[in-house]
Amino acid sequence: MITVGMNYHTLPGKQQEFEEKFAAVIGALEAADGHTSSTLWKDTADDASYLITSEWSDEQAFRDFISSDAFRAVTSWGKEQILSGRPQHKVYKH
């Protein structure tokens, strides 16, 4: 099992839109092979900074998901409209 931390920072005023779009991401995650659970966290010191933690059966399952059409379909909105920069992912192996 692995945990993946996905760090996102939104453009000013886009926090609520990011949180609403996360619902679509959760739907895609729940349908992905190897996905166990995910949680959205919000930074109390910077309300435009978010962390999504996801539990996966293995790293390959996560990599397959982020290269899938399903992932691209639910995240393409964020590149220029919501996010202030490129998301940063970190894999934690158990």
Score class of each variant (00 low, 15 high):
14 K>A: 04
14 K>T: 10
14 K>C: 09
15 Q>L: 05
15 Q>E: 15
16 Q>Y: 01
16 Q>S: 15
16 Q>H: 12
18 F>C: 00
18 F>H: 03
18 F>P: 01
18 F>N: 09
19 E>R: 09
19 E>A: 09
19 E>K: 10
20 E>N: 12
20 E>T: 12
20 E>H: 11
20 E>G: 02
21 K>G: 04
23 A>T: 08
24 A>Y: 13
24 A>H: 13
24 A>K: 13
25 V>R: 01
25 V>M: 10
25 V>N: 06
25 V>W: 09
26 I>W: 07
26 I>A: 06
26 I>H: 06
26 I>V: 10
27 G>V: 11
28 A>P: 01
28 A>Q: 04
28 A>Y: 06
29 L>S: 11
29 L>W: 08
30 E>T: 12
30 E>Y: 06
31 A>R: 14
32 A>Y: 10
32 A>I: 05
32 A>Q: 05
34 G>L: 00
36 T>E: 14
36 T>N: 07
36 T>A: 12
36 T>S: 12
37 S>Q: 06
38 S>A: 15
38 S>L: 10
38 S>C: 11
38 S>D: 08
40 L>W: 11
40 L>S: 08
41 W>C: 15
41 W>T: 15
41 W>A: 14
41 W>G: 14
41 W>N: 15
42 K>L: 00
44 T>D: 04
45 A>W: 07
45 A>N: 12
47 D>E: 14
47 D>R: 13
48 A>L: 14
48 A>Y: 11
49 S>C: 09
49 S>V: 07
49 S>E: 01
49 S>R: 05
50 Y>A: 07
51 L>E: 11
52 I>V: 03
52 I>R: 02
53 T>N: 02
53 T>S: 03
53 T>A: 04
54 S>H: 07
55 E>H: 13
55 E>P: 09
55 E>A: 13
56 W>Y: 02
57 S>F: 06
57 S>D: 14
57 S>Y: 05
58 D>F: 08
58 D>A: 05
58 D>L: 03
59 E>M: 03
59 E>W: 05
59 E>H: 02
60 Q>W: 12
61 A>T: 10
62 F>E: 02
62 F>K: 07
62 F>L: 02
64 D>Y: 09
65 F>M: 11
65 F>G: 09
65 F>T: 04
66 I>T: 08
67 S>C: 08
67 S>T: 08
68 S>H: 02
68 S>C: 00
68 S>I: 03
